[in-house]
Design a protein around this nucleic acid. Structure first.
Length: 591
RNA sequence: GGCCUCGUGGCGCAACUGAAUAGCGCAUCAGAUUUCGGCUCUGAGGGUUGGGGGUUCGAAUCCCUUCGAGGUCACCA
C-alpha cells in the first residue's frame, strides 16, 4: 500500500474516532517550501462533515497520525493545513525499491487500444512549422498514452486527392519541362510545392488579365482558364483517366519520398497510413445505416442530414443530393473502418488544428448517435496556430517556415553554441553533427511541447528558441553532466548497494519529486498533455541542480553517502531520459 | 449575429478537476564557485491574474456581464 493510501485510511479513522463522522475523500498536496513538512493534509474540505476549528481538527488528526502511522514522525498545523514530516527511512526504502526498475513510472499495456492520428498532410506541398507542432504533439501524446498503460496505434490520413493536388500537377505539366527531384536535386515535396506556388502565381495573373478586360473579380476567379483546367483534371482523375492517374502517382511518389525524410529528421513514425483516395468513398453505407436507425433524415432533393439542434448545434449535411460524399461522410466512414481494421481499438485521438473544432464536435456526436461504444472515447487534440511575426503562414504564397529548413537551422545554432563550450574532444565530425541535431531538435521540440496546445504560438525564427532556462538543452545538459559523474563513479568503483538510513534535506526533496513521476505520467495521459511532462522534468532537473550545487557527490569521504548519491543521480538521469523519450527528444551522453 | 478558444509582472510561460504570501524562465540588479562539467547555484526588485459584479469560510480557477485577439458557422477538405 502506498503511503498516501495509508494516510487516507488513517485520517478517515481519526475523523471517525474523534467525531464519529465519515469522510469521503482526503485531500493531499506537497508541502510548500516555506513550511516544514513533506506532505500536507488540507483540513478545510473536512469542515463540511465536521464542524469546528480547522487548526484544532488538524492538530488532533496530526496527533492521531503520529501515533498510528510509523512513517509520520512529527507535524505542524498552519491555518487549515496539516503539514506532516515523513521519516527519512520511508524515502530510503522507497528508493531501494525503485532503484533497479528500468521502466519506473510507466505501465505495461492492458485493456483497449487507442488510435492516435496526427500529421495528415496534403500531398501538394512540403511540411511546415504548423505540421511540426502537429507531429510533435501527436507523437508525444501517443508515447505518453503508451507509457500510461495502453496499446497505441499511430496513424494518419493522407490527403492525396482533390482540386489542390490537381493544381500542382497541372502547373508541373504546363511549366515543369519534365523536371524531377533527380534532375533538380530538390526534395520531391519541395519540387511539387514549388509548382503549387507557381499555379497560384499564374492563376492570379490570369485573374488580373480578366479584370482588365472588364470582368468583375468574382467572375474572373471563377472563369480563369487555369482553374477550369484544374477542375477538368479532377474530373479526369475521378474518371480514372490513365494519363492523369499516372502523373498523380508519379508526383505523389516524389512527395512521399520527401515526407519520409522529414519524418525521419523529426523523429516521428506511424503504424498505419490511410489515404483519402481510398477512403473518400467510405461512409455511404454508414449513412444508410443511420437512416434506418433514424439518426439521419432525407430531404426532398435526396440530400441526407443529421439534425443536431437538440444538442445545441446545427443541421449537418452528411450526403449530397447527388449521392456523393462530403468531408463528414468520409470521416464517419474512416473512423468505422479503423475500428474494423483494429478491433481492439476502444478510442481515438485526432490531432488537428483548432479551426476544425466544430467539425470534430459534430463528428463525435454523430458517431455516438450511431451507437458505437468506442465513440464515447473520442478526443480532438486541438491546437492553436503557429503565427510568424509577419502574420499567417500561407503555402500558396510561400510565406511559411519550412520544416526541413527549421530543423537544419536549429542544428546550426546548436553547433555555434557548442563550439563555444568545447567539451567534445575525441568526437568525430559525424558524431558532432549528430549531437548538434539532438540539441537543436531538443530545443525546438521542448519549446513547442511545453506550451498548452490550445494557445497560439508566435514563432520568431530569429529569437524564439532559447537554450537557457526552461529549455530542452538545459535539461539535456543536466543529463550529460550526470552521465559524466556516472562514468567517473564507475571508474572509481563506487558501490551500488544502498546502505544509508538518513537523508540530507536536498536528497529528500529530490526523492519526493522522483516519487511523483508515475502519477505525472497518468495525469499527462488523461489530460493529453505533453506540457505536464515537460514542466515536471524541468522541476526535477532544477531540484537536481540545486542538490548538485550544495551536496558533494563523488567528493564525499563517506562511502555510504557516495553510493547513495551516485545512485540517486543515476535515477534522475534515467527519469530525464524517460520523460524526454515521451516527448520524442533524445538525450546526449556528452555535450 | 450564434457558438468555440485565448487574455496572468517588460517579454515568454505555469497553476485553470476552487485552498497557505499567484509559481518559473528570459531580461535587470546583487552575490557564490581552488573540489563531481559555470549552458550551474543563491538572493533582490517587478503582478489589484483584461475590466466590473456574484457564489464561497476561501476564486487566476466556478457563474453573470463587458472589453480585446483569433477561429468557426459551405451540397470545400
Amino acid at each position: 500500500m502506498s503511503l498516501q493510501q495509508t494516510l487516507t485510511t488513517q485520517v478517515k479513522k481519526a475523523i471517525y474516532s474523534l467525531y464519529q463522522s465519515n469522510l469521503e475523500t482526503v485531500e493531499f498536496q506537497a508541502t510548500r517550501k516555506e513550511f516544514e513538512g513533506d506532505i500536507t493534509v488540507v483540513v478545510f474540505p473536512m469542515l463540511r462533515v465536521v464542524k469546528g476549528n480547522p487548526v484544532q481538527i488538524g492538530t488532533q488528526i496530526g496527533e492521531f497520525l503520529v501515533e498510528h502511522v510509523a512513517e509520520v514522525s512529527t507535524f505542524n498545523v498552519v491555518k487549515g493545513f496539516l503539514n506532516l514530516v515523513i521519516a527519512d527511512s520511508y524515502y530510503v526504502d522507497f528508493f531501494k525499491e525503485i532503484q533497479h526498475q528500468d521502466t519506473y513510472g510507466t505501465k505495461a499495456p492492458e485493456g483497449k487500444a487507442v488510435m492516435v492520428e496526427y500529421s495528415s498532410p496534403n500531398t501538394n506541398k512540403p511540411l511546415h512549422l504548423g505540421h511540426v507542432r502537429n507531429n510533435l504533439l501527436g507523437y508525444a501524446v501517443a508515447k505518453i498514452i503508451e507509457a500510461s498503460g495502453k496499446k497505441v496505434y499511430k496513424t494518419q490520413i493522407i490527403n492525396d486527392r482533390g482540386i489542390h493536388i490537381c493544381k500542382s500537377m497541372l502547373a508541373w505539366q504546363k511549366y515543369g519541362e519534365g523536371e524531377t527531384p533527380e534532375s533538380t536535386g530538390l526534395k520531391g515535396d519541395k519540387l511539387v510545392g514549388n509548382y503549387y506556388v507557381k499555379f497560384d502565381q499564374e492563376y492570379k495573373a490570369e485573374i488580373q488579365t480578366l479584370i482588365a478586360s472588364g470582368k468583375t473579380e468574382e467572375e474572373a476567379k471563377k472563369e480563369a482558364p487555369l482553374l477550369l483546367e484544374a477542375q477538368d483534371m479532377l474530373l479526369q482523375w475521378e474518371a480514372g483517366d490513365e494519363e492523369v492517374i499516372s502523373l498523380w502517382k508519379k508526383m505523389n511518389g516524389w512527395v512521399y519520398a520527401g515526407f519520409d525524410v522529414t519524418y525521419k529528421n523529426l523523429g516521428v513514425d506511424f503504424d498505419s497510413l490511410y489515404y483519402e483516395s481510398n477512403t473518400y468513398l467510405l461512409g455511404k453505407d454508414n449513412i444508410e445505416e443511420g437512416l434506418e436507425k433514424g439518426v439521419f433524415y432525407k430531404k426532398e432533393d435526396g440530400s441526407v442530414w443529421c439534425d443536431l439542434t437538440e444538442d445545441g448545434l446545427d443541421e449537418k449535411l452528411v450526403l449530397r443530393s447527388d449521392g456523393t460524399a462530403v468531408y463528414m461522410t468520409q470521416d464517419i466512414g474512416t473512423a468505422i473502418q479503423r475500428v474494423k481494421d483494429n478491433p481492439d481499438v476502444g478510442g481515438m485521438i485526432y490531432t488537428v488544428g483548432n479551426e476544425q473544432d466544430y467539425h470534430f464536435k459534430v463528428l463525435f456526436l454523430i458517431l455516438k448517435k450511431l451507437g458505437y461504444d468506442w465513440a464515447e472515447n473520442l478526443f480532438h487534440l486541438s491546437y492553436g496556430m503557429v503565427d510568424l511575426p509577419s502574420g499567417k503562414m500561407k503555402s500558396r504564397e510561400g510565406t511559411v517556415v519550412d520544416a526541413d529548413d527549421l530543423i537544419a537551422e536549429m542544428a546550426t545554432t546548436a553547433e555555434t553554441l557548442s563550439k563555444e563550450l568545447g567539451k567534445l574532444e575525441g568526437y568525430s565530425e559525424e558524431e558532432k553533427q549528430e549531437l548538434y541535431k539532438i540539441i537543436g531538435l531538443g530545443a525546438l521540440k521542448y519549446y513547442i511541447l511545453k506550451v498548452d496546445p490550445q494557445k497560439r504560438i508566435l514563432f520568431n525564427p530569429e529569437e524564439s528558441v532559447e537554450f537557457q532556462g526552461n529549455t530542452g538543452p538545459f535539461i539535456q545538459y543536466t543529463y550529460a553532466r550526470i552521465q559524466s559523474i556516472l562514468r567517473k563513479a564507475k571508474e572509481l568503483g563506487v558501490a551500488t548497494k544502498i546502505t544509508t538510513t538518513s537523508l540530507e534535506p536536498k536528497e529528500k526533496e529530490l526523492l519526493k519529486w522522483i516519487q511523483e513521476y508515475p502519477a505525472i505520467v497518468q495525469q499527462a495521459a488523461q489530460n493529453h498533455s505533453p506540457a505536464l511532462i515537460a514542466n515536471y522534468t524541468y522541476d526535477l532537473v532544477k531540484e537536481f541542480n540545486s542538490f548538485y550545487q550544495q551536496i558533494p557527490i563523488l567528493g564525499t569521504d563517506n562511502e555510504e553517502e557516495k553510493a547513495f548519491r551516485v545512485a540517486l543521480s543515476g535515477k534522475v538521469a534515467q527519469i530525464i531520459k524517460s520523460t524526454f523519450g515521451l516527448l520524442g527528444i533524445d538525450v546526449p551522453e556528452r555535450m
